[in-house]
Amino acid sequence: MQYQLIKTQNQLNEFVEQISNKPILAIDTEFMRRRTLYPEVALIQVYDGEHLALIDPLAELSLFDFWQILRDPKVLKVLHSPSEDIEVFQKYAGFVPAPLFDTQFALQLLGNGNCMGFAHMVKNLLDIEIDKSESRTNWLQRPLTNSQLDYAAADVFHLLPCFEIIIKQINDANFFDIVIAESELIAQKRAYQIPDELLYKDIKNAWQLKPADLVILRELAAWRRNKAIRKNLALNFVLKEHNLVEIVKRKPTSLNAMRNIPDIESSEVNRSGVEILKCLEQAKRVEIQDHPPTLRRLIDFPDYKKVAKDIKQKITAVAKKQAIPEDVFASKKQINQLISWNWKLDSETRKTTPKPDLLRSWRYNYIKDALKEWDV
């Protein structure tokens, strides 16, 4: 396996010229996610079947011409389980490469089980054991070791021959458009940012709180994310999620009172205590009629189990007819997403909230008649 580590602009320009007319590129990224909200990109691996390069984004490089290749709709970009890679490209390139072919999802669509790891795929399809000892390595260190570089290069070196086996089966089943559409859907979902005023609904145990408490949680949840974005800190490094609810329940009026809350660390109070108290004060100014209603879990709706079972049966019938694995068509989470969309959101909220997976993209094309009463 031969590859080059690209650290200069001349090297990158030459590589871009080499791959500029290739119809298929195998791509991977290495990144770190330590205390940051956003992934820190450390390496971009690209293989066209002839030229394999590891691009060092920490070097002083202009990636403009390289990004144009990833933008080219005539070039198929192949990745394995690209959800986090999509986030990397959204952050650092400002777009998501398309069309994008996810080999992990393709295998799932072909009935090979959920979430097959890369090493497992390579063993199954190529009968090659790959070394995964560097999977938890520090990719931001410089210089990278030969072992790190070999590991990173292997990810795309083996990805391309795996794709060549998978694409034949996908084309035989006429599933190519589904694979592409699923990656587009993942990119759309990654790009969506929940509005500040709705963040509190996703906080664990928020359903236990009364409206007067939810208005505090709403303030805190919005503040926490905005600070995380501003400081590029992971949410729990701003304030741990379970501490949000504890603060809401105890309503401290001073920094000392906040320090006495179990599990609240002094460092959290030192960094953010004053801001948290301001959120509590801000919540007090909200009129009662503007308090959010108590949150209901789906399990609290009397007909939930019956309705979920009915939807699942309809999906099962469609999936069998189309020869698509049922768990690919709709997970329990996706069924719950559909029910929540109908039962929990009013017409105004639906206008600013993405439709559930079953009401958009490729799934909707198959399921729209069976679930037409849910398409509000």
Rank of each mutant, 00 (worst) to 15 (best):
L345V: 02
R297Y: 09
Y304A: 10
V179N: 02
L277F: 08
Q4P: 13
E17M: 03
R142P: 04
M258F: 15
E182H: 07
S62E: 06
G111E: 05
I216G: 13
N112G: 12
S81N: 15
N174R: 12
K168A: 13
I24C: 12
K320W: 11
D310G: 11
R230V: 10
N260K: 15
R259F: 04
Y3E: 04
N365R: 15
Y47R: 06
K7L: 06
R360N: 08
H120Y: 13
L25T: 05
G49Q: 13
D303E: 06
Q90T: 00
K368D: 12
N260W: 07
N260A: 05
L37V: 06
I178Y: 11
F175Q: 04
K231N: 05
E30H: 01
T353V: 02
I311M: 15
L109W: 12
D72I: 12
I130V: 12
V328F: 01
R35G: 03
Q2Y: 11
R33V: 11
A212F: 01
K91C: 03
I311R: 01
S133E: 02
T36Y: 07
T352S: 10
R142K: 11
P143S: 14
Y47G: 07
A370S: 15
L277P: 10
P143D: 07
N124C: 04
P195W: 03
K351A: 14
Q282C: 04
A53I: 14
Q169S: 07
R230Q: 04
C162T: 03
R71Y: 00
L110D: 00
I229V: 03
V269C: 10
I299F: 01
D303A: 01
L239R: 04
D346S: 15
L125H: 01
R296F: 08
Y47W: 15
S331W: 14
I324C: 04
A152Q: 12
L126Y: 02
A59T: 03
N13K: 09
